[in-house]
Design a protein around this nucleic acid. Structure first.
Length: 1034
RNA sequence: GGGCGGUUAGCUCAGCGGUAGAGCACUACGUUGACAUCGUAGUGGCCACUGGUUCGAUCCCAGUACCGCCCACCA
C-alpha cells in the first residue's frame, strides 16, 4: 500500500498510541536481552491537581527518549509512572471546585466525607494526566501506576497498594530511632490554610512597608542621660530621657513583647540595662536586656522582643528565658480565647516576677487586651498605631506645613513613619502573609540524616548535572534546618500517633492507700502534665491496635492500676475528655471496674506531602517488601526533574532513601530549568502566555513538540519554547516522511524488512553508510552525556542535510543505472537507520513509516538499536564525496552569483585534473552533471574569454559563459572571494611568520597552517587570473 | 547581604585554546523524477567591556558593566 501524501498526526498518533498500550510495549523488561543491564526511571509524580503543563511535556519527553533508547538497546527498562497526592495543593483545588459547584464546605462535610470528595477529584485529575502522558507518546509501564496515597484508609477500590503502609512504616521507624520528634516551636504558619508549612514553602517577597517608632517609658518615672556620638567619638546628642525608643514593622506584635533588647556594648543604653519599661497599651512592664542580636547601628539600636511572632526574637527569648506569648489564632486574627485580659495579665506579672510556669500555661495566656481581641492582625496593627499615637508614645518629628489659605509656614509634630522596602514572607500556595507561630509540630531531625546524602554526591555515587546543581545541593544540605513535617490538613497521610489524657496519678489512691478513682482529675493531654512517665507523652505505631498495648502497659504502672480497663479510640481530645468523665462517673456509681475505659485519639494532622514523595523511589517498587523489582531496578538510573524542586524533593529523597535502605535512590540526577515562553517570560494564566501541551500536539503533532523539547534541552539555561521552532521540527518530520515516500515509490524496500548492513560498491552508497555510522556514534555519545540537544542536532543535520539533500538526489540517477539494486538496498537500510535513531525523539511518525515501508518483524518501538561502528566508515569514499559535493557546491554557487539561469545546462571545461580528481569525476560523473546542471566536460588547455573559473581540490574547471555571463556580477564574485582569501592568508602568514609559532605550536598545527596557506595562495592565483581575463573582455 | 549562572549573526542558542556555527527570520532565484510543511544561492558577528596568561584567547585567569535565578530574620 503506497504511503499517503502526508502524515496526519491526529489519526496516526491515536492509533499508534493505542497499539503501544495494548501490546504493553513499555512493560518492565519488555524487549530486554537476557542478562541485560537494568535501566530505570521514576517519573516525578505530577500533582493530582489538574492537568500537565508544558514543563511536564518537556520533562517527560526527555525521560521517554532515554527509556526508548535503552529499551531499543535491549536493556531491562522500567519507567515507573504515577501521581502525587499533593496535600495542600489538592485540598485547595478540591475546595475551590466545591465552592464552584456550590457544594457544602469542607467543615460542613466533615473529614470523612471531604476525603471521599478529594478522592473523586484525584480520580479525575489522574485520568487527565495519564491520557496526556499517553498523547505525548510516553512509554511508561502503565500497569505499575503508583500513587503516593495508595492503600490509605478510605481509599476507594482501585486505589489498593501499599504506599500508605510504607509511609507509615517510615514514620514509625524514624520515630523509634529518634529521627522524628514533636515539639512546640516557632513555625511558619499559613493563616489561610491554617496549617504549618516548611520554610521551603515560604516565598520571601520584597514589598513596600513601613517602620514605626515607639517610646517605651521607664518604670517608676526613672530617667537617664541619652548620649549619641559620631564615629570619632564626638557627642552629637545629649538629652535626658524617660523612655527607650524601639522600631518595628509589626506594631501589633508589641502586645506580646517580653523584653527590649540592646547590644551589650551599646553605651547609649548601658545606664538602663536591667531596668523595666512600661509596655504601652498593656498593664505590664518588661525588662531591658542585652543580647548580641540587636545591631547598634540600625534604628535606635533597641529591639522589642516578641518571642512568639518572630524568628529572631524567639531565639533571643530562648536565650533570655523569656515567656513567649502567642497573640494570634490559626486564622491570623488576634486571640479571643481564654481568660479576660485583666486575669491573664495578673498571671503574666506573676510569671515575670518569677512564678514557676510551663510552656503550656504560657501558651494558654491570652495577653491581647479586650479591645483588640478577634481583630484581624492587619486591623489590629492600625488600631495599635492609632492608640499609641493617641497617648503620645510615638516617636515624632517636626514637619513643615504650609497653610493653603494664608501661605504661612508652621511646624507640626508628626509620628515618625519610615517608608521602606521590607521582605515579607508569603505562602507559596495561599499567597497570604505567613505568620511565625508557636505551635506543636512534628519535625525530622535532618542534621542526623544529612551526612550520607552529602557524602553520596561528593563521592560521585550520585551525580548531579549540570554541575552547578551540586553546589546548590551542598549549600542547602550543609545548612539544613529541622524539617517541619506536620500539616493541619485533612488530605494526606495521617500521623500515626495516638494521645491519651493525663490524669493526676496522686488521685488514684487516697490518704489511706485505698482506691480513690472517683476523685480522679482529668488534667489534659497526656504529656502536658506529669502523668505516669514524663517521657511517655504519646505512642507512635502503625495503627491503633499496636498502640493499645502500650497504653495498657502505661496504665499498668499506675499506683492503682486500671488493670481491667479498656483502651478505646475516640475521635478527638474533646471526645476523650467526655468519654473518660462518663466512664469515671459510671464507675463511681456502680463500683464496677469493667465500666472503666481509657480513651485515646489519633493526632489529626497529616504529613507534609514531600515526606511521602521522598519515598517515591523505593515506595513505588514495593518497599518494604523486598520485591524482585526492588532488587532489579533500585537504585534507579536517572532522575529527570526541574531544578526548582532540588530541595523539596531531590535532597529529601537522597536523605530518606539513604536513611531507609542505605542506598542512593538514583545514580544520576538531571536538573532542568523552567520552561518559558518564546520571549523568556514565565508562563502564567494572568499573562495569558500559557502554552497548553495538548494544543501544541493538536496543531503540530506530538513528535514536533518532542523534538523541540529535545533540541532546546541544553544544560543550564532558561528554556524558551517557541511555536515557530516547533513548526520547524514538524517540517522536519514531513521531510523524513517524504524522503521515505520517495524511497517507497521507488521500491527500495521491495517488500522486505530491515536486514543487515548491505555491502555496496558505489562510492556514494559506501559514503552514506559511513555517514550513518558517524551519526550513530554522535547520537549515542550525546545521549550518554545527557546532551539531548546535541543528539537532536546531529539527527536533524544528518537526515535533512545528508540523506535528503544529497543522498536522495544522488540516488535518483543511480536508480536508472547499473547500481540500481545496491542503491535500493542501501537506501532502504539508511532510511531504516534514520527511523530507528529518530524513534526515541519522534516515536509516532517513525513507527508509522516503519509499518508503511518494509515487512517488519516487530514494531519499531521494539526494534534493535544499531551497534555498528567505524567498520562502516570508508575514508576513501568520504574524501571522494567531499570532493564531489564541494565541486557541485562551487559550480552552483558560481552559476547563481553570475545569474546563470537555473535551467540552463552548461558545457564545462577541465583545465587541470590530478589522478584523484579524474577518478572521482569518472565515478561520479552522472551525479555531478545532474546536480550541477553540467551538460558535458571537455579537456582544455586554456580558459577562453568570458568563462568563469571553478577551483576544486586537485582540479580546475571553467564554465564558458560568453554571452550568458554577467560580467559585473562575476567581477564582484571574484573580488569578494579574493578579499576573503586575502584575510585568511594574512592571518596564516602572520602566524607562520612568528618564529615562536613554529617552535611552540604542535607540529600538526603548523603543518596544517602551511598546507592551508599553500592551498589559499593557489586559489588566489586561479581567481586572480580569472579576474585578469575578465578585464580583457570587459 | 550571600551564592550560582548568563552576556556569540535581527531572534533562539551551540561551540569553549589555532581569528566562528546551527535553526528561525531576511534577500534573490526557482514548480529539476519525495517534499512549497519545499529547493538553490546569498546577506548577516572587533564572540559585553578592561587587563593578564600564551607563539596564539570567543574559549583559561582577574576585574568591570548589565541581565537572570536561588538563598537570607536587620527590628
Amino acid at each position: 500500500m503506497p504511503m499517503e501524501k502526508t502524515f496526519s498526526p491526529a489519526e496516526a498518533e491515536a492509533r499508534i498510541s493505542k497499539a503501544w498500550i495494548d501490546r504493553k510495549v513499555g512493560a518492565a523488561g519488555a524487549h530486554a536481552r537476557p542478562g541485560a543491564p537494568a535501566f530505570s526511571i521514576m517519573i516525578p509524580p505530577p500533582n493530582v491537581t489538574g492537568s500537565l503543563h508544558i514543563g511536564h511535556a518537556f520533562n517527560n519527553t526527555l525521560q521517554d527518549i532515554l527509556i526508548r533508547w535503552h529499551r531499543m538497546r535491549g536493556h531491562d527498562t522500567l519507567w515507573q509512572v504515577g501521581t502525587d497526592h499533593a496535600g495542600i495543593a489538592t485540598q485547595m483545588v478540591t475546595e475551590r471546585d466545591m465552592a464552584l459547584h456550590k457544594e457544602p464546605s469542607r467543615t460542613e462535610m466533615g473529614r470523612e466525607t471531604f476525603l471521599a470528595r478529594v478522592w473523586q477529584q484525584k480520580a479525575k485529575s489522574r485520568g487527565t494526566i495519564i491520557s496526556q502522558l499517553q498523547r505525548l507518546g510516553a512509554s511508561c509501564d502503565w500497569d505499575r501506576e503508583a500513587f503516593t496515597m495508595s492503600g490509605a484508609p478510605g481509599a476507594p477500590s482501585g486505589e489498593e497498594g501499599n504506599f500508605h503502609d510504607a509511609v507509615i512504616k517510615v514514620f514509625v521507624d524514624m520515630y523509634d530511632k529518634g529521627l522524628i520528634y514533636r515539639g512546640k516551636r516557632l513555625v511558619n504558619w499559613d493563616p489561610h490554610f491554617e496549617t504549618a508549612i516548611s520554610d521551603l514553602e515560604v516565598e520571601n517577597i520584597e514589598v513596600a512597608g513601613h517602620m514605626w517608632h515607639f517610646k517605651y517609658r521607664l518604670a517608676g518615672g526613672e530617667t537617664y542621660e541619652y548620649i549619641e556620638k559620631d564615629e570619632d567619638g564626638n557627642v552629637t546628642l545629649r538629652e535626658v530621657r524617660d523612655y527607650i525608643s524601639i522600631a518595628t514593622t509589626r506594631p501589633e506584635t508589641m502586645l506580646g513583647d517580653g523584653a527590649v533588647a540592646v547590644h551589650p556594648l551599646d553605651t547609649r543604653y548601658a545606664p538602663i540595662v536591667g531596668k523595666m519599661v512600661h509596655l504601652p497599651l498593656c498593664d505590664r512592664v518588661i525588662p531591658i536586656i542585652t543580647d548580641a542580636y540587636p545591631d547598634s547601628n540600625f534604628g535606635s539600636g533597641a529591639v522589642k522582643i516578641t518571642g512568639a511572632h518572630d524568628f529572631n526574637d524567639y531565639a533571643v527569648a530562648k536565650r533570655a528565658n523569656l515567656p513567649c506569648y502567642r497573640l494570634m489564632d490559626t486564622r491570623g486574627a488576634m486571640r479571643s480565647d481564654g481568660a479576660p485580659y485583666a486575669d491573664a495579665v495578673v498571671r503574666a506579672r506573676e510569671i515575670a516576677a518569677g512564678s514557676s510556669t510551663d510552656e503550656a500555661e504560657v501558651d494558654s495566656l491570652n495577653l491581647v487586651p479586650e479591645k483588640y481581641r478577634g481583630m484581624d492582625r492587619f486591623d489590629a496593627r492600625k488600631a495599635v498605631i492609632a492608640d499609641i499615637n493617641a497617648i503620645g508614645l510615638s516617636v515624632s518629628t517636626l514637619v513643615k506645613q504650609i497653610d493653603p489659605e494664608t501661605g504661612s509656614e508652621h511646624l507640626t509634630r508628626e509620628p515618625l513613619v519610615d517608608v521602606r522596602k521590607i521582605m515579607q514572607p508569603f505562602g507559596d500556595r495561599s499567597k497570604v502573609v505567613i505568620e511565625p507561630m508557636l505551635t506543636d509540630q512534628w519535625f525530622v531531625d535532618t542534621v542526623r540524616i544529612v551526612q550520607p546524602a552529602l557524602d553520596a554526591v561528593r563521592s560521585g555515587a550520585t551525580r548531579i548535572i549540570p554541575e552547578s546543581g551540586e553546589k546548590t545541593y551542598f549549600h542547602w544540605l550543609e545548612n539544613i534546618e529541622p524539617w517541619c513535617i506536620s500539616r493541619q490538613l485533612w488530605w494526606g497521610h495521617q500521623i500515626p500517633v495516638w494521645y491519651g489524657l493525663a490524669i493526676d496519678a496522686d488521685d488514684f489512691v487516697d490518704d489511706e492507700g485505698d482506691n480513690a478513682l472517683d476523685q480522679v482529675e482529668i488534667l489534659g493531654i497526656l504529656g502536658d502534665g506529669g502523668y505516669i512517665d514524663r517521657e511517655a507523652r504519646f505512642h507512635c505505631a502503625a495503627d491503633a491496635a499496636a498502640v493499645t498495648g502500650r497504653f495498657n502497659d502505661d496504665l499498668a504502672r499506675l499506683p492503682h492500676p486500671l488493670n481491667v480497663s479498656r483502651v478505646v479510640e475516640v475521635a478527638d481530645r474533646h471526645a476523650a475528655v467526655e468519654a473518660l468523665a462518663v466512664s469515671l462517673a459510671e464507675y463511681v456509681v456502680t463500683q464496677d471496674p469493667t465500666h472503666l475505659i481509657y480513651p485515646i485519639w489519633r493526632d489529626p494532622d497529616v504529613l507534609d506531602t514531600w515526606f511521602s514523595s521522598g519515598l517515591w523511589p523505593v515506595g513505588t517498587l514495593g518497599w518494604p517488601v523486598n520485591t524482585p523489582e526492588l532488587q532489579k531496578y533500585f537504585p534507579t538510573s536517572t532522575l529527570i526533574t526541574g531544578a526548582d524542586i532540588i530541595f523539596f524533593w531531590v535532597a529529601r529523597m537522597m536523605m530518606m532513601q539513604l536513611a531507609l535502605v542505605g542506598q542512593v535512590p538514583f545514580n544520576t540526577v538531571y536538573l532542568h530549568g523552567l520552561v518559558r515562553d518564546a520571549k523568556g517570560k514565565k508562563m502564567s494564566k494572568s499573562l495569558g502566555n500559557v502554552i497548553d501541551p495538548l494544543e501544541i500536539i493538536d496543531e503540530y503533532g506530538a513528535d514536533a513538540l518532542r523534538f523541540s523539547n529535545a533540541a532546546m534541552a541544553s544544560l543550564g539555561g532558561v528554556l524558551k519554547l517557541d511555536t515557530q521552532r516547533i513548526a520547524g521540527y514538524r517540517n522536519f518530520g514531513t521531510k523524513l516522511w517524504n524522503a521515505c515516500r520517495f524511497a517507497e515509490i521507488n521500491g527500495v524496500w521491495q517488500g522486505h524488512g530491515t536486514g543487515p548492513a548491505p555491502k555496496p560498491k558505489a562510492t556514494v552508497n559506501k559514503w552514506i553508510m559511513g555517514e550513518t555510522a558517524k551519526v550513530l556514534t554522535e547520537v549515542d555519545a550525546a545521549l550518554a552525556d545527557y546532551r539531548f540537544d546535541n543528539a537532536a542536532a546531529s539527527l536533524y543535520s544528518f537526515v535533512w542535510g545528508k540523506v535528503c539533500d544529497w543522498y536522495v538526489e544522488f540516488a535518483k540517477p543511480l536508480f536508472d543505472g547499473p547500481e540500481a539494486t545496491e542503491t535500493r538496498a542501501t537506501m532502504a537500510w539508511v532510511l531504516d537507520q534514520c527511523m530507528i535513531m529518530l524513534h526515541p525523539f519522534m516515536p509516532f511518525i517513525t513507527e508509522e513509516v516503519w509499518a508503511a515501508t518494509g515487512t517488519r518483524s516487530s514494531m519499531l518501538v521494539h526494534a534493535d538499536w544499531p551497534t555498528y561502528g567505524p567498520e562502516l566508515a570508508d575514508a576513501a569514499a568520504d574524501t571522494e564525496m567531499t570532493w564531489v559535493t564541494g565541486l557541485i557546491d562551487a559550480i552552483r554557487s558560481a552559476r547563481s552569483e553570475v545569474h546563470v539561469p537555473v535551467g540552463l545546462k552548461l558545457d564545462m571545461l577541465s583545465l587541470s585534473m590530478d589522478p584523484a580528481a579524474q577518478a572521482a569525476w569518472a565515478r561520479n560523473e552522472v551525479l555531478i552533471k545532474r546536480l550541477a546542471r553540467v551538460e558535458s566536460l571537455t579537456p582544455a588547455t586554456q580558459t577562453p574569454k568570458g568563462a568563469i573559473t571553478i577551483a576544486a581540490t586537485g582540479a580546475s574547471f571553467a564554465l564558458p559563459l560568453d554571452g550568458v555571463i554577467d560580467i559585473a556580477a562575476e567581477r564582484t564574485r571574484l573580488q569578494k572571494a579574493l578579499e576573503k582569501l586575502g584575510k585568511e592568508i594574512g592571518g596564516l602568514k602572520g602566524r607562520l611568520g612568528n618564529p615562536n609559532f613554529a617552535t611552540s605550536a604542535p607540529e600538526e598545527v603548523v603543518d596544517e597552517a602551511r598546507a592551508n596557506l599553500e592551498a589559499r595562495e593557489d586559489e588566489v592565483a586561479k581567481l586572480g587570473a580569472a579576474l585578469k581575463r575578465l578585464a580583457e573582455i570587459g
